[in-house]
Amino acid sequence: KYTPEEIEKLKELRIKHGNDWATIGAALGRSASSVKDRCR
């Protein structure tokens, strides 16, 4: 489950890194597949 803060951070990282899920996941301390599924 993602907190509202994590979702905000995810949005920012998505703008910065696009679909680089590995980088976004690492920044959030989550797996690449987890953040990818969250963005769907």
Rank of each mutant, 00 (worst) to 15 (best):
K1F: 14
K1P: 04
K1A: 08
K1W: 00
K1L: 07
K1D: 15
Y2Q: 13
Y2I: 08
Y2N: 07
Y2V: 11
T3V: 00
T3I: 01
T3Y: 06
P4Q: 15
P4W: 10
P4H: 06
P4A: 14
E5Q: 10
E5D: 12
E5N: 07
E5R: 06
E6N: 02
E6V: 02
E6L: 03
I7Y: 09
I7E: 15
I7D: 15
I7N: 08
I7C: 00
I7Q: 11
E8N: 10
E8A: 14
E8S: 13
E8W: 03
E8L: 11
K9N: 09
K9I: 01
K9P: 01
K9C: 06
K9R: 12
K9M: 14
L10E: 02
L10A: 06
L10G: 03
L10P: 06
L10S: 05
L10V: 07
L10T: 06
L10H: 04
L10I: 13
K11S: 13
K11H: 10
K11V: 11
K11Q: 15
E12R: 12
E12D: 12
L13E: 02
L13W: 11
R14A: 10
R14I: 10
R14G: 02
R14D: 01
R14T: 10
I15Q: 14
I15A: 15
I15W: 07
I15L: 13
I15T: 14
I15V: 14
I15Y: 05
I15F: 15
I15P: 08
I15H: 14
K16N: 11
K16L: 11
K16E: 10
K16S: 07
K16Q: 13
H17P: 01
H17Q: 01
G18A: 09
G18E: 08
G18D: 11
N19Y: 02
N19Q: 12
N19V: 06
N19K: 07
D20E: 05
D20Q: 07
D20G: 02
D20W: 06
D20Y: 00
D20V: 01
D20N: 08
W21G: 07
W21E: 11
W21T: 07
W21H: 07
W21D: 08
W21P: 09
W21N: 07
W21L: 03
A22G: 08
A22T: 09
A22H: 11
A22N: 04
T23I: 09
T23A: 15
T23D: 04
T23S: 13
T23N: 05
I24G: 04
G25W: 01
G25F: 00
G25I: 00
G25T: 02
G25H: 02
A26I: 04
A26V: 08
A26H: 10
A26W: 02
A27S: 08
L28Q: 06
L28I: 10
L28H: 02
L28P: 06
L28V: 10
G29Y: 00
G29I: 00
G29N: 11
G29D: 02
G29K: 06
R30S: 07
R30V: 09
S31M: 03
S31C: 09
A32S: 07
A32Y: 01
A32V: 11
A32E: 14
S33H: 11
S33E: 15
S34C: 12
S34H: 05
S34A: 10
S34G: 05
S34L: 03
S34P: 04
S34N: 09
S34E: 15
V35Q: 03
V35I: 06
V35L: 03
V35M: 01
K36Q: 14
K36A: 15
K36V: 06
K36R: 14
K36F: 05
K36G: 08
D37N: 10
D37E: 15
D37T: 14
D37W: 04
D37G: 04
D37S: 14
R38D: 14
R38I: 12
R38W: 13
R38M: 14
R38K: 13
R38T: 15
R38Q: 15
R38H: 15
R38P: 06
R38C: 14
R38N: 13
C39V: 07
C39G: 08
C39N: 02
C39L: 08
C39K: 01
C39W: 13
R40A: 15
R40D: 15
R40K: 11
R40E: 15
